[in-house]
Design a protein around this nucleic acid. Structure first.
Lengths: 220, 220
DNA sequence: CATTTTCGATAGTAATACTATTATTTTTGT
DNA sequence: ACAAAAATAATAGTATTACTATCGAAAATG
């Protein structure tokens, strides 16, 4: 299955990958979350979709907020894995950074090594819903429970590459978290508020923009 | 009162600035939205706070989503006004851009010209809640109703400065919308997920980062 | 094959996001 | 100053949501 993709165990009550019905909750849940959006998504509707009951889903996830956190965490787990594949056996640090930026800001592509089918859908969910998961009164508690470790470790790892390349650059973490968040934002804008972006210009302007920022901002 | 700050009339049923109780809805509403966050904020609670009833608030705003959109629109109206103040009578385009970036990414400061008391609170609401207002299935309809005009016009105006300074730069709108969104994101991170940012380094790292990006990325 | 675990079915609760009605107060035009 | 119009308060009511609880049947496990 999804080898080596780790999701924090604080996010579920019972591991959904451990049973048939758990897996159905995940696959149908992803689909429904995409179709309805977080607000209209309910465990009742999901239960109907998988021909089960609310009570069963509640045995796996505390509530829909935790379910969303699970999906987002899963996504960043996939990205962590892809970052690893994109940087191992690459000797040049600058090339490692370039590859990392491609993974973080480029479009998912079924031909890349270690492709996981859910990535495309999960990315859409991250783009549309992750603000709702993060900007909550519970952030600080959830952060203490290690829920953002995947994300933080990605930022930290890539920021280390930045530090190696240009030790004088004062904002490595800010730069990387900015590029990650910006990529998702711009993809949303390009569909819904195209005046806020410049995506008609070329193949993948979001990724190109990211590489350009890195290239111009770092001295090496 | 708040002279020249325009909020789209599609956002309210009855202009809240036209009556005593409407103004109380706004001022207490801002406070309650900040205290509780969008999810826990209800018209019932707000009604209790202003010693009125739900029905009365519903005569001013269709629902809490529209109320939030109103507040966000108000914020961007204030920023539009401040951008105007920061660029009129400045002859050098580069200086206009620098001043604009300061307005868009810097911290609000009660000593700046045209300071409006609500700005600080509204900015907090924009930082914490605007994703929930934007990332909805209704974005496209709301965009057609002109709800994002204030925001789009800000991006467009500042992007024009970028085009004047460096006509060869291929992503002016993306650059500006990125810097705006990033500033709000980083301010959130610095409080809740400080490992994702670099804010302890100096006075206002977010603004400094923004100026650095502009300086490095544009040729002039 | 007995036992623990899991699941389905059903019921129930408090809170939310509204809508509706009517009486009372406030505002407004003259 | 006063009648008419508008706005508000008070109250009630509804559908939906986000759960919790119970309990018997089915499935997995050892």
């Amino acid at each position: 299955m999804n080898i080596s993709i780790q999701v924090s165990s604080t996010l579920y009550l019972k591991d959904p990958t451990s049973s048939e019905i758990g897996l159905k909750i995940l696959t149908e849940g992803i689909q429904l979350m995409q179709d309805l959006g977080f607000e209209a998504f309910t465990f009742k509707k999901l239960a109907q979709n998988i021909h089960s009951t609310e009570a069963t889903i509640y045995r796996y996830f505390e509530n829909k907020h935790h379910f969303l956190l699970y999906l987002i965490n899963w996504y960043w787990g996939i990205i962590s894995y892809r970052l690893l594949l994109a940087t191992t056996n690459v000797t040049d640090t600058k090339q490692q950074l370039t590859n990392s930026i491609a993974v973080l800001t480029g479009l998912p592509d079924s031909s890349h090594p270690g492709y996981i089918a859910e990535e495309v859908q999960l990315k859409q969910i991250v783009i549309h819903e992750s603000g709702k998961a993060l900007h909550t009164k519970m952030v600080d508690d959830e952060n203490q429970n290690g829920i953002y470790l995947n994300y933080k470790s990605i930022v930290s790892t890539v920021a280390e590459l930045v530090k190696t390349i240009d030790p004088s650059f004062p904002y490595p973490e800010m730069l990387i978290s900015n590029l990650i968040e910006n990529a998702n934002h711009q993809r949303f804008f390009s569909v819904h508020l195209p005046r806020l972006t410049n995506t008609s210009t070329e193949q993948d302007a979001v990724e190109a923009f990211s590489h350009l920022i890195i290239q111009k901002v770092l001295q090496s």
